[in-house]
Design a binder for these strands. Structure first.
Lengths: 155, 155
DNA sequence: GTGAATAGTTTAACAGTTTAACTAATTTTA
DNA sequence: TAAAATTAGTTAAACTGTTAAACTATTCAC
């Protein structure tokens, strides 16, 4: 790739990722905003999908400090959406699980998220959107590895 | 597309966009976090690229209320990075421009952002990344129109 | 058994957000 | 043309998410 092409691609990427992020975030908030913040929704999704979820695991997945997770967890636990149970063998560890109320609310918001994503994904033909997501997944892998390398620097 | 394919694509999209957003945000913060928050950087970028930028314009571009913009603008104006000048013809309007200090700082962070984006974009071959960005831009257009339609509902 | 490491919480401070009320200026309209 | 409605932007209060640093409680290593 020549320099000029690269510069153009960089500019286009920065610009388009900004717009997509802002608009998607905003549309998502319109859908689920009365029930949950988007971060709270993602936290519930993560807890539901994992078997034994801990704060440390969430902190790593969300790329934030553990205290940020504690704050979010406190808010949704106060609303009775999740439960904390201590590990019997290692009493430092706290497992997070969804309560029935949490499961119901998450299912409701999850459906809304799916409908939203469906409404724009189905505007592409199958080949185009599949190729797009394939490349997007490669990008996710690259970024995850860059992040790991960077953390490796602190050794 | 059959239902099963669509469901799978939705799940993959939700998952991968989450990971990319979190990791990219986190890498970006590592690069420019000592100088500016990412939102502040994007605000400076927007002001620099536009000729006569106002708070209302920023609020629309960032999909937030005007008071959110006022708060951000206040913080970077307190640091002497931008200047406010009132329109002579319509004295309600305030134009935002970068100060010299703001321009310099923005250039510095902009370079770091470009290097970061370059470092992962150049890991793809030209055809793949170009196709990806093309589809990404279509998506941006779709989301922008969805957002507009939704606002039209309030009529 | 003592010292180091680990899991999680608390606290203080800050950035970004919304809603509602507000000021000041301009436009509409009756 | 004077009153009413609209527009641009700010302020204030309340909330969510974030970090850094100090802290508790527990477990691990030697």
């Amino acid at each position: 790739m020549d320099k000029k092409t690269i510069q153009e691609l960089i500019d286009r990427y920065v610009s388009v990722s900004f717009v997509v992020n802002k608009k998607a975030e905003s549309l998502l908030k319109c859908q689920i905003g009365e029930d949950l913040t988007t971060d709270q929704h993602y936290i519930l999704s993560y807890i539901q999908q994992s078997h034994e979820c801990t704060s440390s695991e969430l902190a790593e997945a969300f790329d934030v400090n553990k205290s940020a997770i504690t704050a979010i967890i406190n808010r949704i636990a106060d609303r009775g959406l999740i439960e904390r149970t201590r590990d019997e063998n290692d009493r430092r560890v706290v497992y997070l699980t969804l309560s029935d109320k949490g499961k119901k609310l998450h299912q409701k918001t999850q459906e809304k998220v799916h409908l939203l994503v469906e409404s724009f994904i189905t505007q592409f033909d199958e080949t185009e959107i599949t190729n797009f997501i394939n490349t997007y997944e490669k990008l996710a892998l690259i970024l995850t590895n860059m992040k790991k390398d960077e953390e490796g620097d602190n050794s």
